[in-house]
Each structure stands twice: as structure tokens, then as C-alpha cells.
Amino acid sequence: MKTDSISITDQPIDYAAITEQVRSNECGAVVLFMGTVREMTAGKQTVALDYEAYPEMADQMLQQLVDEARDQWDVHAISIEHRVGHLTLGEISVAIAVSSAHRKEAFEAGRFLIDRLKEIVPIWKKENWADGTTEWVHPEIEAK
């Protein structure tokens, strides 16, 4: 039986390793989601994102997400890693891998995990715009 894995890291995310953690001969499906640093947002150009976490609480909330996913779907294993620090264009900010016997559960649980992560896990990002200004992203304050 594979164990679930959650972590917050300041090192580049090894998405192949995250994926391998959930692979198993019991599974016919593995879904990997990655969040990556996008250059353009609503016409504005980004050069980098700074991520900050409340690490102790983020760990607890990630564990809660895993528990919530397991309550709803029969998945084999879940692995989630979120990066903090200074990330440049294209770098991976988050990777979520889910394995299951059949694809439906892995897709649905993976979608749920990234959506809930964005709602409740205490991690924040700050845009470093190409014009030299910076701006914290706080979704409920700004228009979505």
C-alpha cells in the first residue's frame, strides 16, 4: 500500500519523482497536475512570482485536503508538493499526483485537490511585473 505524501519546499519540484511516488501495479491511471508560472495575466507581463507559506498550517490543511479527497474517491495514492520562494517564468509552483484503479477517480480527485488547495491552504503569491512593480495576489479582494 502506497502512503500519501505532502510537502512544502523551497527547492525546484521534481515532478517525475512526485509521479513515481503514486505509481503502482494496482493502478490503471495516474493523473499529474502542475501549476507553472505564467508570463501574461490580463495583458500584464510577469517576470517572476514570490510564494510565501504559513508552513505549519499549510501542512495541516494539505493533510485535510488529502483526507477530504479520500472520503469522496477510491484513490490509491496522493502526492502533493508546493514550492515557496522566488520562481521565474515556467517554473513549477505546485505538483499534485493521484493514482487510482480507473481514470475517473484520479481525474476527479486531482481536480478537487487543486481547487481546494487554492481556497484553503495558507500560501500566497506576489507578482513581480515587468515594469518593476510588485503586487500580492489576493483573489477575494481583486476582481476575479
Binding site: 510564494y51 509552483s93 505546485v94 488547495l117 495558507p122 503569491k125 500580492w136
Partner: peptide
């Protein structure tokens, strides 16, 4: 208790 205060989250 440990108390913390922060804006709406924006990870991912």
C-alpha cells in the same frame, strides 16, 4: 494558542 492573521490565500 498560536494565533495568525493573513489575507485571502492565493497559492497554486
Amino acid at each position: 494558542q498560536e494565533v495568525a492573521c493573513f489575507p485571502p490565500v492565493s497559492g497554486g
